[in-house]
Write a protein that binds this DNA or RNA. Structure first.
Lengths: 212, 212, 212, 212
DNA sequence: GATGAATGAGTGTTCATTCAT
DNA sequence: GATGAATGAACACTCATTCAT
């Protein structure tokens, strides 16, 4: 009788989580446009006006999903890649955490990237999140380079980091599409792609276009 | 009186191209859902029923855009990367052609990937196209590996190729977002990321996860 | 201030009846195809989405009309023709009730038969209703025949009943087209046509084709 | 080489018959509204503007179908029921011809009645045709009555004839729905229904409603 | 706090019909 | 005579969003 007071009159915070759960699920299944507020409300076991009262319009609701899932992902990564470890160790742990997250929350990942990528209203939100990732990766590389006594132009650093993040997202998609694939193994593969190249960079090896 | 354009009663083939041009433009600007058939028709300088008569429903129209742009892109790449060149040369030329294409047809690229990625109805179409790219890249790597007397598991090859393609798409996005950036330079950067890692692979260097 | 109708926010059941009333009226006036959902909604004093929310698509709405009017008609007939009366009495009362119904609800009749007959999607619905009528009439005839110690093949019975129902529908059309005609008198006329022939049948008189 | 000059440049009369054939077929299959001018033109092996040039708008085209099929039917009946025969003989021959026609041209019948009945624009056309039939039947009855030295009110005569025509149409529908049924037998059944009652009338027997 | 009732606005799609060649 | 090209106009249906209770 005490802690499970049936279904109604739950405190706001709980209700909001239920709604977000439902929203993430429905957005992930149907996509942003095809998802209807009706379905989300029904799935959350609540009436539509409540959804509007608590979480605002459809766009705002989607952004709220984005934030929650993005924060969770960032925390998973940040918690794994302690900043005092050597660069390869940090990269490896970060990737492992990332793919672990994607493997565990495919719905969340789908909302975060599959849906958000295509819809312009969220391009900004997404770009911000991606920028944080790029920054982290670029930071790792820069840190390692400096430790080796090297340096490269900021823009090059950014672009390389951008490419690595893109490759990682791409493998995350691949993982989301192959439910039986092993996240850990996928992380290892990504590490091979990333680190082999990065390690070369660290040692000053670069490729230059041939003179036509 | 002779060469006056005579705006009306154009043959079907011409009208279809006009419509596809307009559709690519509008889809790319607004996204698939936000794009309206009215706007596309108006932009093509034709009435809506003609669009339906020639290119079918909105989905079919989008698929037609996808095909045209995808084919153009593939041809640009295939025309550049002759199969009898060494692997690095092919990769470089392919990348250069690819980024050149994206730089020149930002709208087409947006339709191809930005929009298609998010919309479930086109996931299949897109996956097919991406699969062709992955196959080409994997083929290059495999060819080079065999030339070196090495071999790796097909799935590893696929995943590495997938990652490289993902990184490339990601840089293409970056390029599309930075209108002043130089496609050639972007290609060079991608080549650095890709080839440095690939070259390591070719020499049998791999990274292995630490034993926890 | 108390009994003001408060035109809005009516409970669902009430609104549904209003909508059905409007739909029967509009369908009957314009025919199924020419009727527009806009006009029905407007006539019901409600917005279109409510019609869809409560009664579904145009076809479903029409079927709902069919059911309501058909049920009303059947009840009127069944209430009048008590099964323990002699056959001629039952037939007479049934016919009187039927023509009374048609005379009173010309719109309903038009929806039921005039419209439904022509539109393929409703052929099934209509056939079912007609089959119920045919069955009732055939039952009456069969009952009377057995009371006379006679019997005829089931198929002949069905066809005769079918013809009688057809004649009746036809007179109902006639009645609907002659607003000043008297339903009771029309019933008497139909009774003459039906019963004179039926009574002959009961006495074993039949007509046989001449040998050519 | 002489009399079959391929498909084009046929004389107008021939083309019109082809179009009417196609129109009857398509209208009968799809119904008036669902039938599209495109399909009719295609089925006739001709372009749409030709259909408009020769036979006018969709409604006019349908009326043309109605006329052709109606005329054919009337001729079939009139040719069979010579006016100098006794009433029962005429009725029987007329019915046999009628059901024979329906059995042979189900498409035509469907256009004539199934479609035309429901669509208001053709109510007038149809009423005219039906009136001709009613008149013929009423004439038969009147003729026979007078031969017997009897007479009944014109309106009663009309209504009885209307009922008989309605019963006949109804059985024609039944026949159209039962492709294996025998037209001749159906005619016999109808004759039973009609003549048994009519013969009673001729002998002055009538049914009167009970005094409640 | 919670919801059933209600709607404005918009979109994809179709079709009869006609012009220009 | 014949047709491909073209369109105006309409209509079913949906959905995010908000009142009134």
């Amino acid at each position: 009788m005490s802690s499970v007071p049936a279904f109604k009159r739950l405190p706001r915070a709980v209700r909001e989580q239920q709604m977000l759960d439902a929203a993430v699920k429905v957005f992930s299944r149907r996509g942003f446009h095809a998802a209807s507020m009706d379905e989300i409300a029904e799935d959350a076991g609540i009436s539509k006006p409540m959804v509007y009262a608590y979480l605002g319009t459809k766009e705002e609701l989607f952004v709220a999903c984005l934030h929650r899932e993005g924060t969770r992902m960032m925390q998973a990564i940040a918690g794994a890649a302690a900043p005092d470890l050597p660069a390869d160790e940090r990269l490896w742990r970060g990737l492992r955490a990332f793919f672990g997250f994607v493997g565990a929350y495919r719905d969340g990942w789908a909302v975060l990237y599959r849906q958000a990528r295509g819809e312009q209203p969220f391009a900004g939100e997404l770009a911000t999140m991606r920028a944080r990732l790029v920054e982290v990766v670029a930071g790792m590389l820069d840190h390692a380079l400096r430790a080796e006594g090297r340096e490269i132009a900021a823009i090059d650093l950014e672009v390389v980091a951008y490419a690595l993040v893109g490759a990682t997202e791409s493998l995350a998609d691949w993982l989301a599409d192959h439910p039986d694939a092993d996240p850990e193994k996928t992380a290892t593969r990504m590490m091979n792609v990333a680190w082999l190249g990065a390690a070369q960079l660290l040692h000053g090896v670069t490729w230059r276009p041939p003179v036509d």
